[in-house]
Design a protein around this nucleic acid. Sequence first.
RNA 1: GGGUAAUUAGCUCAGUUGGUUCAGAGCACCGCCUUGACAGGGCGGGGGUCACUGGUUCGAAUCCAGUAUUACCCACCA
Length: 878
Amino acid sequence: MSITEIPRQYDSVQVEERWYQHWMQKGYFRSVPDDREPFTIVIPPPNVTGVLHMGHILNNTIQDILVRRARMQGKNALWVPGTDHASIATEAKVVQKLRAAGIKKGDLSREEFLQHAWDWKENYGGIILEQLKKLGASCDWSRTRFTMEPTMSEAVIDVFVDLYRKGMIYRGLRMINWDPEARTALSNEEVIYRDVSDKLYYVRYPIKDQQDYVVVATTRPETIMGDVAVCFHPDDPRYSGLKGKKLIVPMTGREVPVIFDTYIDMSFGSGALKVTPAHDINDYEIGKRHQLEVIDVFNEDGTMSEAAGLWVGEDRMLVRKKAAAKLAELDLLEKVEDLMHSVGFSERTDAVVEPRLSLQWFLAMDKLATPALEAVMNDEVRLIPSKFKNTYKHWMENIREWCISRQLWWGQRIPAWYYGPGEEDYVVAKNEEEALEEARKKTGKSGLSLAELQQDPDVLDTWASSWLWPISVFDGFSDPRGRDINYYYPTQVLVTAPEILFFWVARMIMAGLEYRGEVPFRDVYLTGIVRDKQRRKMSKSLGNSPDPLEIIAEYGADGMRVGMLISSSAGNDILFDIKQCEQGRNFANKIWNAFRLVKGWEIRPGNNPDNQAAVLWFENKLKRSVSELEQQLNDFRISEALKQLYSFVWDDFCSWYLEFIKPAAGQPIDEATHGASIRFFEVLLKLLHPFMPFITEEIWHYLLPRAEGEDLTIAPWPSQHSWDDSTIEKGEAAKDIIGKVRELRNARQLGFKEALPLYVQAESLKDYEAFSPIITKMGKISEFKAVQEEQPGALGFISGTTRFFLISQESADPAAERERINAEMGRLQGFLLSVEKKLSNERFVSNAAADIVERERQKQADAQEKLRLLEQQLASLN
RNA sequence: GGGUAAUUAGCUCAGUUGGUUCAGAGCACCGCCUUGACAGGGCGGGGGUCACUGGUUCGAAUCCAGUAUUACCCACCA
């Protein structure tokens, strides 16, 4: 192939599409259990409502790197893809879509609605997975799972029934978080608290049979109609006279008692709290202590209920303003202050969450949490970075019951059947038949019919299926002794965002331990959050997330992968900058052009001895690099690994090695050097492949003729060998000399056209012999030889502890030269001083490790030698 | 209120066990180069008191304490 046939710029678009097809067609990502060591990752299933955003890119690129490397290492690598039904998020989406079409959810039957939801899932649910293919994700697509497919739902139901029978799941009346928009209960984890600026209203509550009133501060005048008492601190002298008095609730005229409770903060507001047990968790507790009634003034959609008596059917937020106005009108509003306080919002709908008393299903967490905490504390599950261990511990030690029921339709329906109006008139069973049987047993009525049973209308929290994911993707519930579950479980790594450490990771560990007796994964790699330049989290709703597909189209998937990872250490947020993708693309182009160079050479037989030193140098350096990269990847220092590889390829391979061996224009290269270079390139491609799968596979096939199926994706990972440091050092010394020649040429504006003589002050050239042709070539040296005597007028420099003279026709400027030397000497003297200070310190010599002291001595000797040489040089100028 | 971390060049970030002049990378910037791989490039360069104050140590960007600022997590105040 001639170089002119290869385009100067790498075109990612056509390459990437082609190779992904090929890999799929070859089935390289497929995995079935065999004798090899498994390496398994289960994807954090994206929501079916999702489209690919930058967070997914980061996350899935890391997973792909780990899986591809494992595959090349000869492990049986499996990456299981799938999606999550995302109960509340999807239901909200479907409701929204129906509304746009003029259909109200309430007008549909459950079955009709679910049909719409399934349609929606069929149409949009797979989009995100298709997008992952563009990224190069090497998932086994034949194993794609969905959290609401039949076997997965069965697992959820089985687990529910099991936990119910173990007494860990129960039904109860609790104050829960209510989302009035989605009209469902939420778990604590689904409530996001934000500080908002609000008004604090000081309302006058008249004292019964007196002309006086008490001032009560509240942020929620719309709940006044639900007041059942006014509470003070028992030690508050301002209000001790109110004992036994009744107060009149404004606007309603209702009489409520004055009560006292130590819960009250005397310093807040007026030290008086209106007690509304239906709408505040603390009020509810107070209400229980004082046997107060509960007046729920809201409907489930957040409008005022009949019980409120006022503004019935109007939204609570609107009523807040109206109530304030009304109070002012009645002269019962003393003043209004601004107040910053935190308010809970629904994670999914962003509606203001209302505390609401309702009958829900709960899962007790304490028994599950104990072993799951233990597993992380003793590193059976390693969190990376480990700083998350503390957070995890804190959460697990303060864990509370999990509200698992949702007043929605899209999800696994709660397997409870009711046969009567009583609180205990229900059974929990895996299906209708079993439920009927149980109900007959429980009631003693053998004639009980299915028609008399009413299944609970609610569904389970999405996470009630997600927490089983690492088990259920391998059918570990339906077939607990199956080959898949026993081979692939526990998985190796979970890669996810720290935000769902509790939602998901902790619960998976619990489920794994409860149902498999084994943790679900060994390592949890927690990525950072992708933010924009203003440090805002990238999200679709903010509109600040670029479309990954557009980035792929412009910079290539390889370029984006590199850009995303180049500065993203584990657990640290990353500020996304498109410049980094550009850097990634440029890197791809660099590799492409290195390939063009190597491929474009004409080859002649033989072995050019001039190149041997370069080949040896690079060979050893490559071995060292392989070893270092291996270490980095084992430690999950993925970004570091990439950076190191990047600079190894760009600097050492392209800028140095290829320049070392590059023949003069139009000249052929010797076969031996060329062969070695191809082998080096192959190793580099292998190392690069997990990071940049497409371009490496493309070049792999052009580099050498390959047999059918001899693809890089399944090529063996480079094995590790020992290397020789002294060989590497020789090359580094040559680089230093060349660099210094260039520096001089630049500083003295000598240009690079004219060849100049370079002399070494030494007995012979022997130390530089091997690299002599290379130094000559790259420094544009006309004559490289050893001399003993001073070279007056030459441009001198020191490399290592040896003096060099660059002979130039341009007369050296002695003043400038002196200045340069003096500056250098100044620096060296400072350095020497610090070294000598250390060495003269007896405590250093006696306390520091022997090799450290020895190193310091070496430094001292080097510095002294250099100083001596510089003095010589200075002297020669005079 | 409790917790976890961060603070290093103009920007974004590395810096693993305290030990080589260890103060680094990329981007940005400046000079030179239309060199037969690559201008999406090459060669060279400038730029930082490692937030601050103390301490430990022979030795601190690195360990400890405090201060300031920032971010996130958890809890939550009417």
